[in-house]
Structure formats: structure tokens, C-alpha cells
Write a protein that binds this DNA or RNA. Structure first.
Lengths: 165, 165
DNA sequence: ACAATACGTCAGCTTTGTTGACACTCCAAG
DNA sequence: CTTGGAGTGTCAACAAAGCTGACGTATTGT
């Protein structure tokens, strides 16, 4: 690789530029989680509950094993969160119809309500950022984020996109 | 939902698009932290140590209070991390010259070595993602991330950029 | 009948965050 | 020169959310 075959086209790959990208990612992620965290802080829930609720809303009827794979945590860790949500009546766990070993997870009305509050806060920030930056910037944003995922997660994300579309 | 007044120009602001942005952010952040986490997992350190090391490298001689403001954690939490790093000889804490209440923090040689290992792993992934996506996408990525930060963090990020450049 | 799968749970450990209380050093203002 | 307050460090106690390992139960498929 010749040092600067086309000058400008490689300038953005200097270590300084990469470091700025790293720090931008760090600070932006904190902004990204700030609003839901504030809401959750007023109740007995945390980020883990938010994630569970999000993906149950996303794929109603999903099984525990599937959720485990998406979230990438242990059964015990997820179970603690899920148990609280079920006890509090935000999530319903139904015995699977075809395979009765499985549990299909759904949000109750109360669960949907909380999900809405949380995701609306997050969407509002995302919407503002997207509007601010414009469509082309958004396309670039998505492109870089997808490249930055691990292989596994890229697959999970892709399968979610198919379902959602 | 037939709300597409001007079609394409607003398409990226539908709830579905926003949700995809949210999920992309979630999965990408996990990729972003995966490599350093793997390295740190082999020692007695975690993400908190990485963050401290990163910002000390970034602004050598920084004070504890300044680090506190950047990281947004409590004194006690940071102190626990810092104490471990100092005891292990990765960070040096020098009494301030002008104000002797302050402690100026520096990386030792061993600290620099670890910082390099960690940030090189992170830069490698970021570099690949940037190269994959291209310069325009990178510009968009940065633009959206900056818009997504909280006011406070945007200021911290901006001041870091000034110093770094 | 038996092995494998899906799920739940108990016990115990780690990291990283939190509050609250307290002490020390030092600078600056009265 | 004393005193108030800022910067720092430390103790204790606790919580959230991750982890491993082990075990039990129900169900399914071979």
C-alpha cells in the first residue's frame, strides 16, 4: 500500500481520526442510553430489563433461548430479569403450543406501555440526531455501525431487519 | 401507515428506521468493546480500567477531578480503579506542582504498553469499519454520533478534540 | 427406554456503579 | 493567623448485572 496514493482518501484513517471515532462512539453511546436510564432509574429496573423488553416487543412470542442468543448473556442472568418482569405483570410467559418445553414471551399491556415510554425517549433523541445530520449522514452512520459489529451480531441484526421490514 | 408526504427525504425518520438505528447502535457498541474486553478478561481488569487508561493517555497529567468529569462516575468508583492501576505500576500519581492538593496522573511504561495493546485492538476494528464504509460514510457516522451526545458530553468531546488536534 | 433439549433455580463470585461519613491537605479570604 | 471550602482519599455498606457450576423437571425425539 503506497502511503498516500490519493491523499485525501486515506487521511481519515490516521490514528488521530480513529481515536476521535472511538471517543465519539463512547460519548454517543452514553447519550444513547441516558434517557431510558433516567426513566428506569425511577423504578426498580435497569438497562437489562430495557433490553429484554425491547426484544420481546420486537419479536413477540420469542423463546428464552432465542432471547439468550440475541442478548448474549447467560440463562441465569436473563432469568433474574425475566422473573421480575413476569412477577410485575409486564411480561407474560406462555407454554409453547408445538413444543411445550419452550416458553413464548409476550408483553402485557403494562409492558407495552413501559416499552413505549422507553423507546419513545430513545427514538426522540435518535430522530433529532438523524434530522440534524441529514439522510446521507444517516446512511453513512448505518454503514459504519454494521461494519463495526462482530460476525455473530451482524447476523442477529440482519435477521431482525428481515423480520421487521 | 401512508405517511410519506415527500417520500424519500423523510423515509429515514420512520419509527422503523429509527428502531433499526437503535438496534444498530446496540450491536455495534458490543462489537466496539468486544476486543478490549477479551484482552482485559485475561487480567484482573475491566472496562473501567480501560477507560481510565485511555483518558490518562489522552491527557497526561490530568487531575482526578477532571477524569471524574469526563468519565461521569463517582470519586469512590474511580478511586477503586485508580488504586489498582497505581498499585500495579501502570499509573503514576504525582502531587500537583502548582496546587499540591491535586494529583497529576500519568501512565508508566507498563501502562503505555497496555494502553497500546487495547487501543490497537480497538483501532484495528475501527479502521476496518472505516475502510469498508468509505470516507463519506465516516463523515456521516461522526455527524450523527455528535448529534446524539448529551450537551455535557458534547462539550467534553469537543474539548478533547481541540487538545488532540 | 434413553439421550438431548428447554427452562428454571440455587449458591456463590466479580465488576462497577451507588450513598454517606469522615479526615487530611492546602489555598485564599477575612 | 485563623477559618472556610475545595480537592482528594478512604471506610463501610449496598445494588445491579454479569459470570460459573450444579441440579431438577418437563418434554421431545430417536
Amino acid at each position: 500500500m503506497p502511503e498516500h496514493s490519493s491523499g485525501n482518501s486515506l487521511l481519515y484513517l490516521t490514528d488521530e481520526q480513529l481515536r476521535q471515532g472511538i471517543e465519539a462512539m463512547y460519548f454517543a453511546y452514553r447519550g444513547f442510553t441516558a434517557d431510558p436510564d433516567r426513566i428506569l432509574g425511577t423504578m426498580a429496573y435497569g438497562r437489562a430489563h430495557h433490553r429484554a423488553i425491547h426484544f420481546i416487543k420486537r419479536a413477540p412470542g420469542t423463546t428464552v433461548t432465542n432471547l439468550l442468543a440475541i442478548l448474549g448473556v447467560t440463562k441465569q442472568s436473563l432469568n433474574r430479569v425475566l422473573r421480575a418482569l413476569i412477577e410485575d405483570g409486564l411480561v407474560e410467559s406462555q407454554v409453547g403450543s408445538s413444543d411445550r418445553r419452550e416458553r413464548n414471551l409476550f408483553l402485557t399491556e403494562a409492558g407495552e406501555a413501559l416499552e413505549n415510554r422507553l423507546s419513545e425517549a430513545q427514538r426522540t433523541r435518535m430522530r433529532a440526531a438523524f434530522r440534524d445530520a441529514g439522510p446521507e449522514a444517516v446512511a453513512g452512520f448505518r454503514k459504519v455501525l454494521e461494519s463495526m459489529m462482530d460476525g455473530d451480531m451482524k447476523r442477529r441484526y440482519a435477521s431482525l431487519r428481515e423480520n421487521g421490514q
